[in-house]
Structure formats: structure tokens, C-alpha cells
Design a binder for these strands. Structure first.
Lengths: 256, 256
DNA sequence: TCCAATTTCGTACGCTGTACGAAAATGACA
DNA sequence: TGTCATTTTCGTACAGCGTACGAAATTGGA
């Protein structure tokens, strides 16, 4: 019998699930009775990650995951409270796969590394962009990542708050580039045409429909882009350009 | 009988729908026979926008929109080819509601205006962030907007390609701030707690679970953030800080 | 051996977008 | 005015989703 009255547990249940491999010292108490679980949470999460990598986040359905193990769909709910929690577990688990390299001494190179690492990861697992919209996750691997990101901007001359905000700007920017790359790939997949093919196929309709409007700058810029790299956009160069400007701004701010 | 062989029309059908109010000079040919349509595409799109503003994009279902007009769900498909096309129409239409102010002379103020306008709009219509992921849209109001954005960075000393990339960085950043604001609001709605309440409710679990890990920088930064503004993040200040750094970087690049 | 605890999972519900085809409404023409 | 081709309306249906519920199966401890 407890002295303290039973107040409803307001704490997020998926927190313990996220940190299941690092809970203090003791192992999580195995169930004493009942059938042994046939798979593990990690296996389920890994299977879901595979599925998302291969076919996109929309293909990550409870039924599809369960089928990979020959389980019934509802069985997954004895491992994971619901689909959203699974997505968070996927995000943290895939984050843990990327090892965090030593940081170079040069501040500019440090910031570039933070952005490029995020960008590469999001290119490899584009579904992370969609998961991000579901919930901010506070898992062990994400925490490690954040600590590493902060260490990259530490000692440069930023205040504590500015350190956080600088990291946010950098990884946000990397995410935007990754997002535009994803959209470009998706558009090509949906339409079955490359970007330049799309513009060609729609040229007549566009010029007819835009006859009454005038876009001198957009035309000039669009022409320049088309000549520079047979497409309207080139995310790789956007990354280099934008990253250089942001880092310039940050380093100028701390007076270098 | 046509001389040219019938080649399948590869052009995007929703393009004509997007530009329905500006097609050259002549009106779109009204149907000669059959019942008159009871509503208009604009009314449908406006209703969908209202719904999205009030209850989020997930509430924008074909059935819900149709019900607003006392129509059957399938009736909408005589106005709009499918839901995705409707979302694009919504995005362009709501973009047209924001009037584009005169641009100030000062380059810094011009760039700030571009970012702030995007940010305010996304705050008022957060579902635009989700629509953006569906498809890049090329409607009349988005085209006007893009031309205006380019004019804001024109004459500053950027190349044509850099103009486009600069706009992309600015509005992408504004979008990221709006996204984190949206997530914060959503989290409070889902959990029923404010951010600081969440941290309080999960403090015990967190410190237990993170006992084996060390996050000196994250702790320092988190403490600083908590003291500065009773929360882990403050999007409004992130906007000011990041925007200043980005614009610094751009203006330094063109040598001012 | 028996029971309590736990996992497994079939069924079902409400929800989604939308394919299909019948029914209703309308303007043009005989 | 009657007829018909055209167009809009929309009821029904289907596949797929997350998941609530409850029964069945499995297991270790007493």
C-alpha cells in the first residue's frame, strides 16, 4: 500500500520505450508468465525502417510490418502502443546508425559537417522528414546527436541560446534541401517524366495560360537555371550556396 | 479529322484549373447541355480553406466539403479531378489573398519582408506546410508571389541563380520556424499540457532514463533556454536570430 | 496439475479516396 | 412540343487504413 495517493501517470509512455536499452543499470523486467514474445521491438523497428527506406513511409502499415514476421497485425500492439510511437522509435533507431565523426578544428568546417551529416542522412532516409512532423522525439540517439551538434558550435563565441538556434538553422536548412530533392524525385515518379520533360510537355499549355501575365524576372531566372543545369532547380548547388551564406552570417556574428 | 495524329495529352490537367480565371482573353466554354452546376470551383476551394484553417488539413475530406453545400461527396469530382488537385487549388487561392506590399529601398528590409510575409502566412494557414509536401504547384498566385520575391532580391548584386537560391533559403527558413510553431501547438493540443508542464510531468522519468548518459552541453543550453523563456524553444526569437544571420551572409556575399 | 498472467490474433468498426453506373436535369433541334 | 444527347448529381461499393475488443493459445509458478 502506497503512502502517496495514486495520481494518474502523466508521463509519456513511449519515453521508456525509446530508452529501453539504456535504462539505468538493471534490465527491464522480463514477463514472468505467458508465451514468450516471438520477435523483439528492435526487429520490428528495423523491419519498419527497411520498409520505409524501400517503399516510403506510406508503405509502413501495421499489417505490412506484421506480415514480415508472419504475425497478425494486432500482435504488434503488444510491442508498441500505436503507429505514431513506432514512427518515433524508427526515427531514433535510424539516427543511431549514423556514427558521429570527430569534429574538425576549423569552425566553418564544423558547421558544414553538421549540415552535411543531416543532409546525407535525410537523403538516405527521406521518410524522416515526414516523421519529424508527427512529434518531436527525445530518444537516446537523438539526444546524442543533439549533444554532438551543440559541441560543433561550442567554443565559437555564441551564447547558449544562440548555439541552439544556430544548430536549428543549420539542420533546418539541410532538411529543406533534402525535402526539395524528395519532392523532385516523387514528381518524376508520379508523372513518369523527368523535370525537363515535364516542362516540355506543358510548355504549350503554360504559355497559353500565362499569356495574360508577365513574369520578367521569373523568366530570366528560369532561363538561367535551365541553361545552367537542365532543370528548374539543382538542390546540390542550393546546398552549397545556402550553407555558405548561413555560415558566413554566423561567423560574422561572432566576429571572425 | 485531324491531320496531326492523336497523341495522348501529357500536359497536367490541373494547370488549366489553376489558371481558370486568367486564361488569355476568352472565358472558359460553359457547358451547353446538362444541369447547371450548383456551386463554383471557387466556392468549393474557399470552403476547403475554411475547413483547413479551422480544423487542420486532415479535416479536409471530400465528404466534409460536400456536406457544407448539401451535396453528395462524389459531386465534387465534377469540379475537381481529385483531392490532391484540390489541395493545390487551395494553396494557390489562399496565396492570392495575401497582398504583396511595396518593397522598401533598403536591401536588408527587403529580405526581411520576404521572410516575414511567408512566415505570417504560414502561421495563419499552417496546413500550407503539409500541402507543400504533396506537390510543387505552379498557379497564378504562386507565380505572382515568386515574381515579387525575385524582385525583392533583384538589383542587390546576386546572379540570376543566386537570386532564386536566396529566395529559397529565406522562405525555407520561414517555413521551418512556422513548422516548429505548428508542432509546438500540436503537441500542446495532443498532450493537453503546455511545454513546461510536459517537462515537469516527465522530469522524473527523464532523469531516471537518462541516468546513464551525459549531456553537459544540452543541459547547459536547455537550462539557459528554460530561464530565458519558460520553454525549451521560442520560435519568435529563432526567427529574428536566424533571419539576421542569413541576411548578414547574403549581404556580405554581394559585398556590402 | 491447475491457474493466473501474458501474448497472439480474428473480427469488426469507422474512416478515407474514389471507381462505377444509374438517375436526373438541361439545352438544342426536329 | 417532344425527343435526345449531354452533363451533372450522387448512391453504392471497394480496398485500405489504424485500432478497440474479446476470445484463444501459451507459458511459468505454486
Amino acid at each position: 500500500m502506497n503512502d502517496v495517493p495514486d495520481q494518474p501517470d502523466q508521463s509519456d509512455p513511449s519515453l521508456r520505450l525509446l530508452w529501453r536499452h539504456r535504462t539505468g543499470a538493471r534490465e527491464e523486467p522480463r514477463a514472468k508468465r505467458g508465451p514468450k514474445q516471438k520477435v523483439s521491438v528492435d526487429e520490428i523497428v528495423d523491419a519498419a525502417i527497411d520498409l520505409a527506406d524501400a517503399e516510403g513511409l506510406a508503405a509502413v502499415t501495421m499489417r505490412a510490418i506484421a506480415q514480415r514476421f508472419g504475425l497478425g497485425a494486432m500482435t504488434l500492439y503488444s510491442y508498441v502502443p500505436n503507429r505514431d510511437a513506432l514512427l518515433v522509435l524508427m526515427a531514433d533507431q535510424v539516427t543511431g546508425r549514423t556514427e558521429l565523426p570527430e569534429l574538425p578544428a576549423d569552425p566553418r568546417k564544423r558547421l558544414e559537417l553538421v549540415a552535411n551529416l543531416a543532409h546525407d542522412e535525410l537523403r538516405a532516409h527521406p521518410w524522416l522528414l515526414e516523421v519529424q512532423d508527427v512529434r518531436p522525439w527525445l530518444g537516446p540517439n537523438m539526444s546524442d546527436r543533439y549533444e554532438w551538434q551543440l559541441s560543433a558550435v561550442d567554443g565559437i563565441g555564441l551564447t547558449d541560446l544562440e548555439m541552439d538556434q544556430t544548430v536549428a538553422v543549420l539542420i533546418g536548412f539541410a532538411g529543406n534541401i533534402a525535402r526539395s530533392e524528395l519532392m523532385k524525385r516523387r514528381a518524376e515518379q508520379v508523372t513518369g517524366m523527368t523535370e525537363s520533360q515535364w516542362w516540355e510537355a506543358n510548355y504549350d499549355t503554360l504559355s497559353e495560360v500565362m499569356a495574360g501575365s508577365h513574369y520578367p524576372l521569373a523568366n530570366r531566372v528560369g532561363t538561367a537555371a535551365g541553361e545552367a543545369y537542365q532543370a528548374a532547380t539543382d538542390p546540390a548547388r542550393e546546398l552549397d550556396y545556402g550553407l555558405a551564406r548561413i555560415i558566413d552570417g554566423v561567423l560574422a556574428h561572432v566576429g571572425r
